[in-house]
Design a protein around this nucleic acid. Structure first.
Length: 525
RNA sequence: GCCGCAUUCGUCUAGUGGUCCAGGACAACUGCCUCUCACGCAGUAGAUCGCCGGUUCGACUCCGGCAUGCGGUACCA
Protein backbone atom coordinates (compact mmCIF):
# COMPACT_ATOMS: atom_id res chain seq x y z
CA UNK A 1 0.00 0.00 0.00
CA UNK A 2 1.51 3.31 -1.04
CA UNK A 3 0.99 6.03 1.48
CA UNK A 4 0.73 9.68 0.76
CA UNK A 5 4.20 11.20 0.76
CA UNK A 6 4.86 13.31 3.83
CA UNK A 7 8.40 14.39 4.64
CA UNK A 8 9.82 16.65 7.27
CA UNK A 9 12.85 18.81 7.74
CA UNK A 10 13.60 18.75 11.45
CA UNK A 11 16.45 21.03 12.46
CA UNK A 12 17.27 21.98 15.99
CA UNK A 13 17.50 25.70 16.69
CA UNK A 14 20.99 25.68 18.14
CA UNK A 15 22.48 28.23 15.77
CA UNK A 16 22.49 29.21 12.14
CA UNK A 17 21.38 26.52 9.71
CA UNK A 18 24.44 24.83 8.26
CA UNK A 19 24.65 24.51 4.48
CA UNK A 20 24.57 20.73 4.85
CA UNK A 21 21.26 21.13 6.62
CA UNK A 22 20.06 23.29 3.76
CA UNK A 23 20.85 20.47 1.37
CA UNK A 24 18.90 18.03 3.52
CA UNK A 25 15.95 20.40 3.45
CA UNK A 26 16.29 20.77 -0.31
CA UNK A 27 16.27 17.02 -0.95
CA UNK A 28 13.22 16.63 1.25
CA UNK A 29 11.54 19.44 -0.62
CA UNK A 30 12.35 18.05 -4.06
CA UNK A 31 11.10 14.63 -3.05
CA UNK A 32 7.88 16.04 -1.60
CA UNK A 33 7.12 18.20 -4.61
CA UNK A 34 7.90 15.47 -7.08
CA UNK A 35 5.45 13.16 -5.40
CA UNK A 36 2.73 15.67 -4.74
CA UNK A 37 3.47 15.20 -1.07
CA UNK A 38 3.64 17.40 1.98
CA UNK A 39 6.72 19.20 3.27
CA UNK A 40 6.83 19.81 7.00
CA UNK A 41 9.08 22.02 9.12
CA UNK A 42 9.40 20.66 12.62
CA UNK A 43 11.62 22.29 15.20
CA UNK A 44 13.49 19.84 17.40
CA UNK A 45 14.23 21.85 20.49
CA UNK A 46 14.20 19.15 23.14
CA UNK A 47 17.53 20.30 24.50
CA UNK A 48 16.61 23.46 26.31
CA UNK A 49 20.19 24.13 27.30
CA UNK A 50 21.21 24.57 23.70
CA UNK A 51 18.46 26.91 22.65
CA UNK A 52 19.74 29.91 20.70
CA UNK A 53 17.47 32.91 20.24
CA UNK A 54 16.84 33.79 16.63
CA UNK A 55 17.87 30.44 15.25
CA UNK A 56 14.36 29.37 14.38
CA UNK A 57 13.62 32.58 12.49
CA UNK A 58 16.93 32.21 10.73
CA UNK A 59 15.96 28.75 9.49
CA UNK A 60 12.64 29.96 8.17
CA UNK A 61 14.15 32.99 6.48
CA UNK A 62 17.02 31.08 4.92
CA UNK A 63 14.84 28.39 3.39
CA UNK A 64 12.35 30.94 2.20
CA UNK A 65 15.14 32.88 0.48
CA UNK A 66 16.12 29.71 -1.35
CA UNK A 67 12.59 28.96 -2.45
CA UNK A 68 12.26 25.87 -0.28
CA UNK A 69 8.66 26.11 0.83
CA UNK A 70 6.66 24.28 3.46
CA UNK A 71 3.09 23.07 3.57
CA UNK A 72 3.03 22.58 7.32
CA UNK A 73 5.28 23.78 10.09
CA UNK A 74 5.96 26.13 12.95
CA UNK A 75 5.57 29.19 10.77
CA UNK A 76 2.61 28.08 8.62
CA UNK A 77 0.60 25.82 10.91
CA UNK A 78 -1.19 22.67 9.80
CA UNK A 79 -3.37 19.86 11.09
CA UNK A 80 -0.63 17.90 12.78
CA UNK A 81 0.68 20.57 15.13
CA UNK A 82 2.14 21.86 17.20
CA UNK A 83 5.30 21.72 15.14
CA UNK A 84 7.74 22.69 17.84
CA UNK A 85 8.73 19.86 20.14
CA UNK A 86 8.89 22.08 23.21
CA UNK A 87 5.23 22.87 22.53
CA UNK A 88 4.49 19.16 22.34
CA UNK A 89 6.11 18.44 25.68
CA UNK A 90 2.99 17.11 27.46
CA UNK A 91 2.55 14.55 24.74
CA UNK A 92 5.65 12.48 25.18
CA UNK A 93 5.35 11.24 28.75
CA UNK A 94 2.52 8.84 27.93
CA UNK A 95 4.59 7.20 25.23
CA UNK A 96 7.49 6.71 27.61
CA UNK A 97 5.01 5.24 30.10
CA UNK A 98 3.67 2.89 27.47
CA UNK A 99 7.16 1.58 26.78
CA UNK A 100 7.74 1.22 30.53
CA UNK A 101 4.49 -0.69 30.95
CA UNK A 102 5.28 -3.01 28.08
CA UNK A 103 8.77 -3.79 29.33
CA UNK A 104 10.55 -1.99 26.48
CA UNK A 105 12.04 0.58 28.79
CA UNK A 106 13.11 1.07 32.38
CA UNK A 107 13.75 3.80 34.91
CA UNK A 108 17.35 4.64 35.60
CA UNK A 109 18.46 6.69 38.61
CA UNK A 110 22.16 6.97 37.92
CA UNK A 111 23.17 10.59 38.06
CA UNK A 112 25.19 12.15 35.26
CA UNK A 113 28.03 12.48 37.77
CA UNK A 114 27.89 8.78 38.63
CA UNK A 115 27.88 7.85 34.95
CA UNK A 116 30.76 10.17 34.33
CA UNK A 117 32.78 8.68 37.16
CA UNK A 118 32.08 5.21 35.84
CA UNK A 119 33.30 6.18 32.39
CA UNK A 120 36.46 7.69 33.76
CA UNK A 121 37.12 4.65 35.90
CA UNK A 122 36.81 2.27 32.95
CA UNK A 123 38.80 4.57 30.78
CA UNK A 124 41.69 4.35 33.21
CA UNK A 125 41.68 0.62 32.55
CA UNK A 126 41.53 1.28 28.82
CA UNK A 127 37.96 0.08 28.63
CA UNK A 128 34.89 1.96 27.63
CA UNK A 129 31.64 2.17 29.47
CA UNK A 130 28.38 1.68 27.69
CA UNK A 131 24.99 1.49 29.36
CA UNK A 132 23.80 -1.72 27.68
CA UNK A 133 22.62 -5.27 28.26
CA UNK A 134 25.91 -6.14 29.93
CA UNK A 135 26.10 -3.26 32.35
CA UNK A 136 22.51 -2.38 33.11
CA UNK A 137 22.32 -5.14 35.70
CA UNK A 138 24.91 -3.40 37.81
CA UNK A 139 23.45 0.08 37.68
CA UNK A 140 20.80 1.81 39.71
CA UNK A 141 17.63 1.25 37.77
CA UNK A 142 14.23 -0.38 37.90
CA UNK A 143 15.78 -3.59 36.65
CA UNK A 144 18.05 -3.93 39.67
CA UNK A 145 16.15 -2.14 42.42
CA UNK A 146 13.16 -3.70 44.20
CA UNK A 147 9.83 -2.40 42.85
CA UNK A 148 8.86 -0.64 46.05
CA UNK A 149 12.22 1.13 46.14
CA UNK A 150 11.69 2.32 42.59
CA UNK A 151 8.23 3.54 43.50
CA UNK A 152 9.54 5.28 46.62
CA UNK A 153 12.27 7.10 44.72
CA UNK A 154 9.89 8.32 42.08
CA UNK A 155 7.31 9.49 44.61
CA UNK A 156 10.06 11.15 46.58
CA UNK A 157 10.90 13.14 43.49
CA UNK A 158 14.29 11.62 42.71
CA UNK A 159 15.63 12.43 39.29
CA UNK A 160 15.29 9.63 36.82
CA UNK A 161 15.54 9.00 33.12
CA UNK A 162 13.79 6.39 31.02
CA UNK A 163 16.08 4.18 28.98
CA UNK A 164 15.26 1.87 26.12
CA UNK A 165 15.83 -1.77 26.94
CA UNK A 166 17.43 -3.36 23.94
CA UNK A 167 16.57 -7.07 23.61
CA UNK A 168 19.65 -9.27 23.63
CA UNK A 169 21.17 -11.13 20.70
CA UNK A 170 19.04 -9.49 18.10
CA UNK A 171 20.13 -8.63 14.57
CA UNK A 172 18.40 -5.41 13.66
CA UNK A 173 18.19 -4.49 10.01
CA UNK A 174 17.49 -1.01 8.76
CA UNK A 175 16.59 -0.70 5.13
CA UNK A 176 18.09 2.45 3.70
CA UNK A 177 16.99 3.78 0.34
CA UNK A 178 20.53 4.86 -0.49
CA UNK A 179 22.66 2.15 1.11
CA UNK A 180 20.46 -0.93 1.15
CA UNK A 181 20.22 -3.06 4.27
CA UNK A 182 22.32 -2.08 7.26
CA UNK A 183 22.42 -4.62 10.07
CA UNK A 184 23.58 -4.20 13.64
CA UNK A 185 23.57 -6.46 16.66
CA UNK A 186 21.54 -5.29 19.64
CA UNK A 187 24.19 -6.47 22.09
CA UNK A 188 26.49 -3.71 20.90
CA UNK A 189 23.91 -0.98 21.10
CA UNK A 190 23.50 1.08 24.23
CA UNK A 191 20.32 1.66 26.14
CA UNK A 192 19.66 5.16 24.94
CA UNK A 193 17.94 7.65 27.17
CA UNK A 194 14.46 8.28 25.80
CA UNK A 195 13.13 10.58 28.44
CA UNK A 196 15.29 13.02 30.34
CA UNK A 197 15.13 13.99 33.98
CA UNK A 198 14.01 17.49 33.00
CA UNK A 199 10.75 16.03 31.70
CA UNK A 200 11.67 16.39 28.04
CA UNK A 201 12.06 13.49 25.65
CA UNK A 202 15.38 13.04 23.85
CA UNK A 203 15.60 13.36 20.09
CA UNK A 204 15.13 9.62 19.70
CA UNK A 205 11.77 9.39 21.41
CA UNK A 206 10.37 12.68 20.17
CA UNK A 207 11.46 11.95 16.63
CA UNK A 208 9.66 8.60 16.47
CA UNK A 209 6.52 9.79 18.23
CA UNK A 210 6.28 12.88 16.07
CA UNK A 211 7.02 11.15 12.79
CA UNK A 212 4.32 8.63 13.62
CA UNK A 213 1.77 11.20 14.72
CA UNK A 214 2.55 13.40 11.74
CA UNK A 215 2.27 10.41 9.42
CA UNK A 216 5.70 10.95 7.96
CA UNK A 217 6.31 8.53 5.10
CA UNK A 218 10.00 9.14 4.35
CA UNK A 219 12.79 10.22 6.64
CA UNK A 220 15.54 11.88 4.60
CA UNK A 221 18.31 12.99 6.95
CA UNK A 222 22.09 13.18 7.34
CA UNK A 223 24.33 10.16 7.60
CA UNK A 224 25.19 10.99 11.19
CA UNK A 225 21.87 9.40 12.09
CA UNK A 226 22.63 6.03 10.55
CA UNK A 227 24.15 4.55 13.73
CA UNK A 228 21.02 5.29 15.73
CA UNK A 229 18.62 4.10 13.04
CA UNK A 230 18.39 0.60 14.57
CA UNK A 231 17.15 2.19 17.79
CA UNK A 232 14.53 4.03 15.80
CA UNK A 233 13.43 0.87 14.04
CA UNK A 234 13.17 -0.87 17.39
CA UNK A 235 11.05 1.95 18.76
CA UNK A 236 8.58 1.58 15.90
CA UNK A 237 8.48 -2.10 16.72
CA UNK A 238 8.04 -1.49 20.44
CA UNK A 239 5.15 0.88 19.81
CA UNK A 240 3.57 -1.53 17.36
CA UNK A 241 3.89 0.98 14.53
CA UNK A 242 6.13 -1.05 12.32
CA UNK A 243 3.66 -1.31 9.45
CA UNK A 244 3.58 2.46 9.04
CA UNK A 245 7.26 3.03 9.75
CA UNK A 246 8.72 5.60 7.34
CA UNK A 247 11.30 4.72 4.73
CA UNK A 248 14.80 5.90 5.57
CA UNK A 249 17.36 7.62 3.38
CA UNK A 250 20.64 8.70 4.98
CA UNK A 251 22.43 11.39 3.01
CA UNK A 252 26.23 11.48 2.63
CA UNK A 253 27.99 14.27 4.52
CA UNK A 254 29.34 17.50 3.13
CA UNK A 255 33.11 17.58 3.62
CA UNK A 256 35.51 20.48 3.91
CA UNK A 257 37.33 21.47 0.68
CA UNK A 258 40.78 20.49 1.88
CA UNK A 259 41.83 17.52 3.95
CA UNK A 260 39.10 15.47 5.45
CA UNK A 261 36.25 15.89 7.84
CA UNK A 262 32.89 17.47 8.08
CA UNK A 263 32.45 20.96 6.75
CA UNK A 264 32.44 23.26 9.73
CA UNK A 265 31.76 26.88 10.50
CA UNK A 266 35.46 27.62 10.90
CA UNK A 267 36.37 26.29 7.45
CA UNK A 268 34.14 28.75 5.75
CA UNK A 269 35.66 31.83 7.26
CA UNK A 270 39.15 30.44 6.99
CA UNK A 271 38.85 29.49 3.32
CA UNK A 272 36.78 32.47 2.29
CA UNK A 273 33.44 31.00 1.41
CA UNK A 274 30.18 30.81 3.30
CA UNK A 275 29.04 27.78 5.23
CA UNK A 276 25.69 29.37 6.00
CA UNK A 277 22.89 30.55 3.76
CA UNK A 278 22.54 33.95 5.44
CA UNK A 279 24.78 36.11 7.58
CA UNK A 280 24.57 35.16 11.21
CA UNK A 281 25.68 37.11 14.21
CA UNK A 282 26.20 35.01 17.28
CA UNK A 283 24.02 36.53 20.02
CA UNK A 284 26.56 35.53 22.66
CA UNK A 285 29.88 36.47 21.16
CA UNK A 286 28.75 38.92 18.49
CA UNK A 287 30.90 37.00 16.03
CA UNK A 288 29.72 37.23 12.43
CA UNK A 289 29.59 34.23 10.11
CA UNK A 290 29.01 35.14 6.52
CA UNK A 291 26.20 33.82 4.37
CA UNK A 292 25.69 33.06 0.73
CA UNK A 293 23.03 35.69 0.32
CA UNK A 294 25.17 38.55 1.60
CA UNK A 295 28.13 37.34 -0.43
CA UNK A 296 26.08 37.89 -3.54
CA UNK A 297 25.13 34.34 -4.37
CA UNK A 298 21.82 34.00 -6.17
CA UNK A 299 19.36 31.61 -4.52
CA UNK A 300 18.97 29.59 -7.72
CA UNK A 301 22.72 29.10 -7.94
CA UNK A 302 22.96 27.93 -4.35
CA UNK A 303 20.09 25.50 -4.81
CA UNK A 304 21.55 24.21 -8.08
CA UNK A 305 24.99 23.75 -6.61
CA UNK A 306 23.70 22.02 -3.49
CA UNK A 307 21.43 19.74 -5.49
CA UNK A 308 24.42 18.46 -7.44
CA UNK A 309 26.58 17.98 -4.36
CA UNK A 310 25.70 14.38 -3.63
CA UNK A 311 23.11 13.80 -6.30
CA UNK A 312 23.27 13.60 -10.08
CA UNK A 313 20.58 13.47 -12.72
CA UNK A 314 22.18 10.62 -14.67
CA UNK A 315 22.48 12.98 -17.64
CA UNK A 316 25.03 15.65 -18.45
CA UNK A 317 22.76 18.54 -17.62
CA UNK A 318 24.26 20.81 -14.95
CA UNK A 319 22.03 23.84 -14.82
CA UNK A 320 18.63 23.16 -13.29
CA UNK A 321 15.78 25.38 -12.29
CA UNK A 322 13.90 24.32 -9.18
CA UNK A 323 11.12 22.91 -11.37
CA UNK A 324 13.61 20.91 -13.38
CA UNK A 325 15.16 19.59 -10.19
CA UNK A 326 11.76 18.51 -8.94
CA UNK A 327 11.21 16.56 -12.14
CA UNK A 328 14.68 15.01 -12.28
CA UNK A 329 15.31 14.25 -8.62
CA UNK A 330 15.70 10.58 -7.78
CA UNK A 331 16.80 9.16 -4.44
CA UNK A 332 18.49 6.23 -6.17
CA UNK A 333 20.90 8.69 -7.79
CA UNK A 334 22.12 10.06 -4.47
CA UNK A 335 25.75 9.12 -3.96
CA UNK A 336 26.93 7.15 -0.97
CA UNK A 337 30.17 8.92 -0.19
CA UNK A 338 30.74 12.32 1.31
CA UNK A 339 31.18 15.26 -1.05
CA UNK A 340 33.96 17.80 -0.74
CA UNK A 341 32.80 21.31 -1.15
CA UNK A 342 34.31 23.07 -4.19
CA UNK A 343 34.51 26.84 -4.00
CA UNK A 344 35.51 27.35 -7.65
CA UNK A 345 32.52 25.46 -8.90
CA UNK A 346 30.18 27.40 -6.68
CA UNK A 347 31.50 30.59 -8.29
CA UNK A 348 30.91 29.12 -11.72
CA UNK A 349 27.33 28.32 -10.80
CA UNK A 350 26.80 31.86 -9.66
CA UNK A 351 28.29 33.23 -12.85
CA UNK A 352 25.87 31.13 -14.87
CA UNK A 353 22.92 32.38 -12.85
CA UNK A 354 24.09 36.00 -13.00
CA UNK A 355 24.06 35.79 -16.79
CA UNK A 356 20.37 34.91 -16.71
CA UNK A 357 19.56 38.25 -15.09
CA UNK A 358 18.31 41.15 -17.18
CA UNK A 359 20.28 44.36 -17.69
CA UNK A 360 17.75 46.02 -15.45
CA UNK A 361 18.42 43.57 -12.64
CA UNK A 362 22.16 44.19 -13.00
CA UNK A 363 21.47 47.91 -12.86
CA UNK A 364 19.50 47.41 -9.65
CA UNK A 365 22.59 45.84 -8.10
CA UNK A 366 24.91 48.52 -9.43
CA UNK A 367 22.91 51.63 -8.54
CA UNK A 368 23.47 51.37 -4.76
CA UNK A 369 27.18 50.87 -5.39
CA UNK A 370 27.20 54.00 -7.54
CA UNK A 371 25.55 55.87 -4.71
CA UNK A 372 28.34 54.71 -2.40
CA UNK A 373 30.72 56.50 -4.74
CA UNK A 374 28.71 59.67 -4.91
CA UNK A 375 26.99 58.99 -8.20
CA UNK A 376 23.24 59.33 -8.42
CA UNK A 377 20.91 58.07 -11.09
CA UNK A 378 18.18 60.05 -12.84
CA UNK A 379 15.40 58.82 -15.11
CA UNK A 380 15.88 60.95 -18.22
CA UNK A 381 18.73 62.96 -19.81
CA UNK A 382 16.95 66.28 -19.25
CA UNK A 383 17.10 65.65 -15.49
CA UNK A 384 20.88 65.72 -15.58
CA UNK A 385 22.09 68.77 -13.73
CA UNK A 386 25.58 67.71 -12.77
CA UNK A 387 27.32 65.60 -15.33
CA UNK A 388 30.14 64.69 -12.98
CA UNK A 389 27.98 62.95 -10.41
CA UNK A 390 24.85 61.96 -12.27
CA UNK A 391 24.02 59.40 -14.88
CA UNK A 392 20.78 58.20 -16.43
CA UNK A 393 19.15 54.90 -15.73
CA UNK A 394 19.54 53.99 -19.34
CA UNK A 395 23.26 54.64 -19.19
CA UNK A 396 23.64 52.30 -16.21
CA UNK A 397 21.75 49.56 -18.03
CA UNK A 398 23.84 50.09 -21.11
CA UNK A 399 27.01 49.65 -19.08
CA UNK A 400 25.57 46.53 -17.46
CA UNK A 401 24.66 45.02 -20.80
CA UNK A 402 28.20 45.53 -21.97
CA UNK A 403 29.93 44.26 -18.84
CA UNK A 404 27.66 41.61 -17.33
CA UNK A 405 29.39 38.60 -18.84
CA UNK A 406 32.50 39.27 -16.82
CA UNK A 407 30.64 39.39 -13.53
CA UNK A 408 30.48 36.49 -11.05
CA UNK A 409 29.04 38.41 -8.13
CA UNK A 410 27.11 41.67 -7.82
CA UNK A 411 29.84 42.98 -5.53
CA UNK A 412 32.24 43.01 -8.49
CA UNK A 413 30.06 45.42 -10.43
CA UNK A 414 31.55 48.69 -9.27
CA UNK A 415 35.17 47.68 -9.56
CA UNK A 416 34.71 46.34 -13.08
CA UNK A 417 32.63 49.25 -14.36
CA UNK A 418 33.90 52.22 -12.38
CA UNK A 419 35.71 53.77 -15.35
CA UNK A 420 32.36 54.26 -17.06
CA UNK A 421 31.47 56.63 -14.26
CA UNK A 422 34.75 58.17 -13.17
CA UNK A 423 37.74 59.39 -15.14
CA UNK A 424 40.97 57.68 -14.10
CA UNK A 425 42.84 59.46 -11.34
CA UNK A 426 46.04 57.55 -11.98
CA UNK A 427 47.58 55.56 -14.78
CA UNK A 428 48.88 52.04 -14.20
CA UNK A 429 52.65 52.29 -14.30
CA UNK A 430 53.31 48.76 -15.56
CA UNK A 431 50.88 49.28 -18.43
CA UNK A 432 52.40 52.65 -19.21
CA UNK A 433 55.88 51.20 -19.27
CA UNK A 434 54.75 48.52 -21.68
CA UNK A 435 52.62 50.62 -24.02
CA UNK A 436 53.32 54.34 -23.71
CA UNK A 437 56.43 54.60 -25.80
CA UNK A 438 58.27 57.76 -26.87
CA UNK A 439 56.27 59.72 -29.42
CA UNK A 440 52.97 58.54 -27.99
CA UNK A 441 51.90 62.03 -26.98
CA UNK A 442 52.05 63.00 -30.61
CA UNK A 443 49.78 60.10 -31.54
CA UNK A 444 47.34 61.02 -28.80
CA UNK A 445 47.25 64.61 -29.94
CA UNK A 446 46.52 63.37 -33.44
CA UNK A 447 43.65 61.25 -32.13
CA UNK A 448 42.39 64.33 -30.34
CA UNK A 449 42.28 66.11 -33.68
CA UNK A 450 40.56 63.20 -35.37
CA UNK A 451 37.92 63.05 -32.63
CA UNK A 452 37.20 66.67 -33.23
CA UNK A 453 36.88 66.44 -36.98
CA UNK A 454 35.08 63.16 -37.57
CA UNK A 455 31.44 62.19 -37.30
CA UNK A 456 31.05 60.64 -33.87
CA UNK A 457 29.87 57.11 -34.57
CA UNK A 458 31.55 53.74 -34.28
CA UNK A 459 32.17 53.17 -37.99
CA UNK A 460 33.52 56.64 -38.69
CA UNK A 461 35.81 56.50 -35.68
CA UNK A 462 37.05 53.10 -36.72
CA UNK A 463 37.84 54.30 -40.22
CA UNK A 464 39.47 57.52 -39.12
CA UNK A 465 41.55 56.18 -36.24
CA UNK A 466 42.21 52.53 -37.03
CA UNK A 467 42.19 52.41 -40.81
CA UNK A 468 43.24 55.84 -42.04
CA UNK A 469 45.63 56.75 -39.26
CA UNK A 470 47.16 53.69 -37.64
CA UNK A 471 46.97 51.06 -40.38
CA UNK A 472 47.58 53.38 -43.32
CA UNK A 473 50.69 54.81 -41.65
CA UNK A 474 51.79 51.38 -40.47
CA UNK A 475 51.95 52.47 -36.89
CA UNK A 476 51.92 49.95 -34.07
CA UNK A 477 48.25 49.22 -33.46
CA UNK A 478 48.82 47.56 -30.09
CA UNK A 479 50.88 50.42 -28.72
CA UNK A 480 48.61 53.20 -29.86
CA UNK A 481 45.26 51.65 -29.02
CA UNK A 482 46.48 50.49 -25.63
CA UNK A 483 47.90 53.90 -24.86
CA UNK A 484 44.59 55.41 -25.90
CA UNK A 485 42.95 52.91 -23.55
CA UNK A 486 45.27 53.82 -20.68
CA UNK A 487 44.45 57.46 -21.28
CA UNK A 488 40.71 56.83 -21.00
CA UNK A 489 40.56 54.00 -18.47
CA UNK A 490 43.86 54.17 -16.61
CA UNK A 491 44.89 50.61 -17.41
CA UNK A 492 44.73 48.05 -20.19
CA UNK A 493 41.50 46.33 -19.37
CA UNK A 494 37.92 46.63 -20.50
CA UNK A 495 35.59 46.32 -23.44
CA UNK A 496 36.05 47.24 -27.09
CA UNK A 497 37.62 50.69 -26.93
CA UNK A 498 35.55 52.42 -29.60
CA UNK A 499 32.38 51.07 -28.05
CA UNK A 500 33.60 52.48 -24.78
CA UNK A 501 34.32 55.82 -26.43
CA UNK A 502 30.82 55.84 -27.90
CA UNK A 503 29.37 55.03 -24.49
CA UNK A 504 31.04 57.77 -22.49
CA UNK A 505 30.62 60.24 -25.38
CA UNK A 506 32.78 62.65 -27.22
CA UNK A 507 33.08 65.32 -24.56
CA UNK A 508 34.16 62.92 -21.86
CA UNK A 509 36.55 61.13 -24.21
CA UNK A 510 38.23 64.38 -25.21
CA UNK A 511 38.41 65.53 -21.63
CA UNK A 512 40.04 62.30 -20.45
CA UNK A 513 42.45 62.16 -23.36
CA UNK A 514 43.55 65.79 -22.89
CA UNK A 515 44.18 65.25 -19.25
CA UNK A 516 46.16 62.08 -19.95
CA UNK A 517 48.35 63.82 -22.49
CA UNK A 518 49.05 66.59 -19.99
CA UNK A 519 49.81 64.20 -17.15
CA UNK A 520 51.62 61.40 -18.90
CA UNK A 521 53.31 63.36 -21.63
CA UNK A 522 55.96 64.49 -19.23
CA UNK A 523 56.84 60.91 -18.35
CA UNK A 524 58.36 60.36 -21.75
CA UNK A 525 62.03 59.78 -21.54
C1' G B 1 38.84 0.52 21.49
C1' C B 2 34.02 -0.98 19.60
C1' C B 3 30.01 -0.45 15.83
C1' G B 4 28.56 1.40 11.11
C1' C B 5 29.24 3.72 6.35
C1' A B 6 32.34 4.91 2.38
C1' U B 7 36.69 4.54 -1.29
C1' U B 8 36.59 6.23 -10.01
C1' C B 9 40.97 12.33 -12.95
C1' G B 10 43.15 18.01 -8.02
C1' U B 11 37.44 18.55 -6.98
C1' C B 12 32.06 17.13 -8.02
C1' U B 13 30.64 12.95 -10.51
C1' A B 14 28.86 9.08 -14.92
C1' G B 15 29.29 3.91 -14.70
C1' U B 16 24.12 -1.53 -11.81
C1' G B 17 29.34 -8.01 -15.48
C1' G B 18 31.25 -7.30 -22.01
C1' U B 19 29.19 -1.18 -25.69
C1' C B 20 35.03 1.84 -20.79
C1' C B 21 42.59 1.37 -23.54
C1' A B 22 36.56 4.77 -18.11
C1' G B 23 32.30 9.76 -20.12
C1' G B 24 30.87 14.96 -18.40
C1' A B 25 31.58 19.47 -15.38
C1' C B 26 34.80 22.91 -12.39
C1' A B 27 39.86 24.14 -12.03
C1' A B 28 44.66 23.89 -15.09
C1' C B 29 47.12 24.37 -19.80
C1' U B 30 47.14 25.61 -25.31
C1' G B 31 44.89 27.90 -29.35
C1' C B 32 41.02 30.97 -31.71
C1' C B 33 38.63 35.72 -31.19
C1' U B 34 41.25 40.62 -30.31
C1' C B 35 43.90 47.23 -29.36
C1' U B 36 43.82 45.09 -23.79
C1' C B 37 41.48 42.26 -19.89
C1' A B 38 37.53 39.28 -19.39
C1' C B 39 33.47 36.44 -21.67
C1' G B 40 32.83 32.87 -25.39
C1' C B 41 34.49 28.94 -28.55
C1' A B 42 37.89 24.88 -29.80
C1' G B 43 41.43 21.64 -28.09
C1' U B 44 45.25 19.26 -24.59
C1' A B 45 46.63 17.06 -20.31
C1' G B 46 44.85 14.59 -15.97
C1' A B 47 42.05 8.12 -13.04
C1' U B 48 47.18 1.26 -13.36
C1' C B 49 38.72 2.62 -11.01
C1' G B 50 42.43 2.36 -2.52
C1' C B 51 45.31 -2.54 -2.05
C1' C B 52 45.35 -8.05 -2.17
C1' G B 53 42.81 -12.33 -3.22
C1' G B 54 38.36 -14.91 -5.08
C1' U B 55 33.91 -15.87 -8.41
C1' U B 56 33.38 -15.60 -13.90
C1' C B 57 35.00 -16.98 -20.63
C1' G B 58 35.13 -11.73 -18.96
C1' A B 59 34.96 -7.11 -13.05
C1' C B 60 35.26 -0.31 -12.10
C1' U B 61 30.85 -3.25 -11.61
C1' C B 62 29.73 -9.49 -7.52
C1' C B 63 32.23 -11.83 -2.85
C1' G B 64 36.13 -11.86 1.11
C1' G B 65 40.27 -9.71 3.66
C1' C B 66 43.30 -5.50 4.47
C1' A B 67 44.27 -0.20 4.35
C1' U B 68 42.59 4.63 4.62
C1' G B 69 38.83 8.26 5.53
C1' C B 70 34.41 9.63 7.73
C1' G B 71 30.28 9.04 11.12
C1' G B 72 28.52 7.19 15.81
C1' U B 73 29.74 5.64 20.59
C1' A B 74 26.13 12.23 25.75
C1' C B 75 20.09 12.99 30.44
C1' C B 76 23.24 16.94 21.95
C1' A B 77 20.58 16.90 17.95
Amino acid sequence: MERKVRVRFAPSPTGPLHIGGVRTALYNYLFARQNGGTMILRIEDTDQTRFVPGAEDYIVEALSWLGIGFDEGVHVGGNYGPYRQSDRKPLYRQYADQLLADGWAYYAFDTPQALDAKRKELEAQKKTFQYDCNTRTSMENSLTLPPDEVKRRIERGDNFVVRFKFPEHLEITVHDLIRGDVTMNSDLLDDKVLFKSDGMPTYHLANIVDDHLMEVSHVIRGEEWLPSAPLHVMLYRAFGWEDTMPHFAHLPLLLKPEGNGKLSKRDGDRLGFPVFPLDWRDPQTGELSSGYRERGYLPGAVVNMLALLGWNPGTEQEIFSMDELIKAFDISHISKSGAKFNVEKSKWFNHEYMQMLSDKQFADYLIPQLADHGISVVETPDQLTNRGSQVTNQYVEQVCAMMKNRINFPSELWETTSYFFEAPTEYNSADLKKRWKPGMTTHMNKILQILDSVTFDHDSLHKAILDDYIVANQFNMGQIMNSFRIALIGKTVGPDLLTFVMTIGKDETVRRLRRAVETIGELES
